[in-house]
Computed example of a mutant assay.
Amino acid sequence: MISKRVGVVESIVDQNEGLDDIRVSINGDIQRAYNYSKMTGKINVGDEVVLNTTAVELSLGTGGYHFVITNLNNLESDLTQGGHIMKLRYTPFQVKVDSVEEQESIYHDKIEKFKSLDDMPVVVGTLHSMLTPFVASYKKNNPNKKLVYIMTDGAALPIYLSKNVYTLKSKGLIDSTITIGSAFGGDHECINIYTALITAKEILNADCVFVSMGPGIAGTGTKYGFTGIEQGPILDAVYKLGGNPIAIPRVSFADKRDRHVGISHHSITVFKDIVNVKVNIPITNYQDEKINVVKSQIEKNKLENKHNITIIDNKNTKLDLDYFGLKVRSMGRNYEQDKEFFEAASTAAYYLMEVCDVNRRENY
């Protein structure tokens, strides 16, 4: 069920493409809210708005903001042009988009004629916070290569919510974005991961693709009950289409939950039980006992029998982030508080250079 309240816009704290960070007065109490301007229109101080307050009332971490449902002073939106594919289908918020696969699309024939990804590297993460460290390290060392980000619908659906994507695109570090499933707002819209990968190669001429959900992740503490389990089917899709599947493991030594210490049980579940094909898993050569913990988990779960495990020396993550003036945070922790998590994503970029690029050159 949806909890709704009416509020009045008191101030606009920040605005970027598609997202307004606002403060609203609800019965005299000033609270934070987000307005998706392309969905619910331009907003002004003094506007009366209907808000979805469900997550805040439940004190949820995921989706824990008020969201504008309707601006009673402006009922117009920008998501009204072109396309015949609906996202958020059969809900009061369904939106019309131009999908790459549509018959009327100028790209339709390219999608139809696709044959193979030709070993294009596709790096698949789970948390959205893996995106920035990977991009920083990849673009620092490959400034002229095209990097495409595919955002799944495993968490946030409007790409506008991601301030990371906005920052990385503004700095020219992400060349193009694709949103799939019920996610929307990317430079290109696709129905599923298969056509998104084809779009990245055939239409956007990507040198590398990064795939992950948007901000937010749902987890239940059960073996299979987390949205990051999508990593497995995505890696399968990459392999099926002839790409090079590379998986970022979720690693942390700062998380207080035992199931997420070292390699998270999320990653172990995906690598051991969900993904059906052999994939490449870069592992950072952590210092001291930390690397021993990770190696023990790999051995205990026999991951080296199923996948290509490669230990990579990487001490450049912070340098790469600082080079572009980027800050990172995951689960409320910054780089200094959880560096192994961010290093795992960055290391995937170094794996591409040290292993994948070398192999490709040798095969030509």
Rank of each mutant, 00 (worst) to 15 (best):
I2H: 06
I2R: 11
V8E: 10
I12M: 14
Q15I: 15
D20Y: 08
I26T: 03
N27E: 12
R32P: 03
A33G: 00
V45N: 05
L51V: 03
L51R: 07
N52T: 06
T54S: 10
V56C: 05
E57L: 00
L60V: 05
G64P: 11
L72E: 10
S77C: 12
T80F: 13
Q81N: 13
I85G: 09
K87F: 06
T91N: 08
P92C: 12
S99M: 00
E101I: 09
Y107A: 02
H108K: 10
K110H: 10
I111D: 02
K115L: 04
D119C: 02
M120C: 13
M120Q: 01
V124K: 05
L127N: 13
L127S: 13
M130P: 10
L131N: 04
A136K: 08
S137G: 04
N142S: 01
N142D: 01
N144W: 05
T152P: 03
G154S: 11
A155D: 01
I159R: 07
S162N: 04
K163P: 09
V165D: 07
L173Q: 02
I178A: 03
T179Q: 01
I180W: 09
G181A: 01
C190R: 04
T199G: 07
T199S: 15
K201D: 07
A206R: 02
F210I: 05
G216K: 00
I217N: 12
T227I: 08
G232A: 11
I234F: 11
G242S: 01
G243N: 03
P245I: 05
A247G: 10
R250E: 01
D255R: 07
D255E: 08
T269W: 14
F271H: 11
V279I: 15
N280H: 14
N280E: 14
E299L: 04
K300W: 10
K306I: 10
N314K: 01
K318Q: 11
L326E: 00
R329N: 09
R333L: 11
Q337V: 00
F341V: 07
F341I: 03
A345T: 07
S346E: 07
V355W: 01
R361S: 09
